[in-house]
Nucleic acid binder design. Structure first.
Lengths: 167, 167
DNA sequence: ATATGTGCAAATCTTTTGCAAATTC
DNA sequence: GAATTTGCAAAAGATTTGCACATAT
């Protein structure tokens, strides 16, 4: 069960068990917190919510503009800041495999790690009880109230390790 | 034992046990790999090696220039790229507590996590067997050859959690 | 009606690059 | 002496900001 499958709540036809990782609705969370909703926010948040891959600001802007060409870069960054500030999305570097930009994803019900392959660029997500255990330990032993956790790993996936003979 | 103390090998008067985290000599590692050594590299690498705190490119440049005013920004970035490419330093964001820059530190004998306090900006380092265990599990279960691991946490340190009442 | 969000264009900050001169092996 | 590294200056890439106008509650 170590390699996690991640689905939005709406994508799951069944109620997930403890092991199932879900993505709570960003829109609902925002409204629950009394955040003013605009059409642009609805659009951007909807894209973040539904995107299967990790989005950077430029890609998010491009997708949004297909639906509403007036969307501006600044609004994208401001919306990202809003979501990040409320703890609703996580920020990733993905080992800077393609530049210095950041990637974003809706926060999931369970934290997970991102393993980035230097060979093929694949991003593998990974969640496990050992990760949850480490978080609890850090909070307790380190006397620290954890709000955000980011675990990123770089290396070689099975295929690339075999092919390239890299170790 | 959970909160790690980190020392350079030379700073330790005794031979460290398994729990002791050390920083191997960057210079030696470079020479062992046949990397051409220049005066600037020696200078920059020496600063990285000895710095007790996490350096960003600008700070590294500033320190280097105190000793040799001719050092250029470009050389700093090129040296960082060299060290990073050889796996001798780790790159950190430290939760972007102060801007989008990156921080660097000489790789240690045991990986450790960085906990960044949103309240006071403190950076707390943390190493534990649970972290080592998680790494091994990821490598095995995820079929992944790990080269770099980066675990960063954001939240509130003990003091700030009490003071601000944030939870 | 008032507070908040947005577009636009310019600014800022970090990092990278081309090329001629300097340095290392 | 040949290959590599450096400084300089300019460019590139990502993100932020000031301000007048538009929108949400």
């Amino acid at each position: 069960m170590a390699v996690a499958l991640i689905a939005t709540e709406s994508q799951l036809g069944r109620s997930g068990n403890d092991r199932t990782i879900t993505r709570p609705s960003l829109l609902k969370e925002l409204m629950a917190r009394g955040v003013r909703m605009t059409s642009q926010r609805r659009l951007l948040v909807g894209i973040m919510q539904d995107s299967p891959s990790h989005l950077d600001a430029a890609k998010l802007l491009a997708i949004a503009r297909q639906r509403d060409p007036r969307v501006d870069r600044a609004t994208v960054y401001r919306t990202i800041a809003l979501l990040k500030g409320r703890g609703l999305i996580d920020e990733l570097d993905l080992m800077h495999l393609e530049g210095e930009k950041h990637y974003y994803e809706a926060k999931t019900s369970q934290d997970h790690c991102h393993m980035a392959c230097f060979g093929c660029g694949a991003i593998i997500e990974y969640a496990s009880p050992a990760f949850e255990h480490l978080k609890k330990e850090m909070a307790k032993q380190g006397d620290f109230q954890i709000r955000v956790v980011r675990l990123e790993v770089g290396g070689y996936c099975k295929t690339c390790a075999q092919r390239g003979g890299r170790q």
